[in-house]
Computed example of a mutant assay.
Amino acid sequence: MRALIQRVSRASVTIAGETRGEIGRGFLVLLGVTEGDTLEDAQYLADKTVKLRVFTDENDKMNKALADVGGGILVVSQFTLYGDCRKGNRPSFIAAARPETAIPLYEAFIARCRQSGLAVETGEFGADMQVDLLNDGPVTLWMDSAEMRQK
């Protein structure tokens, strides 16, 4: 499971002209699922996400987490995080999990984030979405559960 996390001043997701999810300060999380991912991967990444300390403290050091700053999370499904661009000019997406595998894990990630007590908004799995954000910093982090567990 992969998460591209952007620290934002604001973010929203719109589907067919209707705003579905919107946050102020917090994280925009683009979330991808691959075959072989498990509930453990979803919970692991969610726990890491909500505890990330990338908001600045009074000494201008990245020491504060979402809960410390009253931040929220906007989670958007993003199968293209598993795009393979090594061959040719058209990415292959065969590493992305099929919806029957990906949807329950996407929902498990969201549920685990909500258990933290933070405000969590979402897009709609598989929908054509327009994402608007104001990246703060910019701060953008990449987490891959398979890579992180190997260390």
Rank of each mutant, 00 (worst) to 15 (best):
M1H: 11
M1V: 05
R2W: 04
R2A: 05
R2P: 01
L4R: 04
Q6E: 03
R10G: 01
S12E: 13
T14H: 06
I15F: 08
A16Q: 15
G17K: 12
G21N: 05
I23D: 02
G24Y: 01
R25P: 02
L30M: 06
L30E: 00
G32F: 01
G32Y: 02
V33C: 12
V33Y: 09
T34P: 08
L39S: 15
D41G: 06
Y44I: 02
A46D: 09
D47R: 15
T49A: 08
V50K: 08
K51F: 04
R53Q: 07
R53Y: 02
T56C: 11
D57K: 12
D57M: 12
N63P: 06
N63Y: 09
N63G: 11
K64T: 10
K64P: 05
L66F: 04
L66S: 01
L66I: 03
A67T: 14
D68M: 07
V69D: 09
V69A: 08
G70N: 09
G71I: 00
I73V: 15
I73R: 03
L74H: 07
V75W: 08
V75C: 12
F79P: 00
Y82E: 07
Y82L: 12
Y82P: 02
D84C: 11
R86Y: 11
G88H: 03
R90K: 15
S92V: 10
A96E: 09
A96Y: 10
R98N: 14
E100D: 15
I103C: 04
Y106R: 10
Y106I: 06
Y106T: 07
Y106Q: 10
E107R: 14
A108T: 08
I110M: 07
I110L: 08
I110C: 12
R112G: 02
C113S: 11
C113I: 07
G117L: 06
V120A: 08
E121A: 12
T122A: 07
E124R: 13
E124V: 13
F125Y: 15
G126P: 07
G126I: 02
A127Q: 02
Q130W: 04
D132N: 13
D136Y: 01
V139K: 03
T140E: 01
L141G: 05
W142N: 08
M143H: 01
A146W: 11
M148P: 00
Q150F: 11
K151V: 10
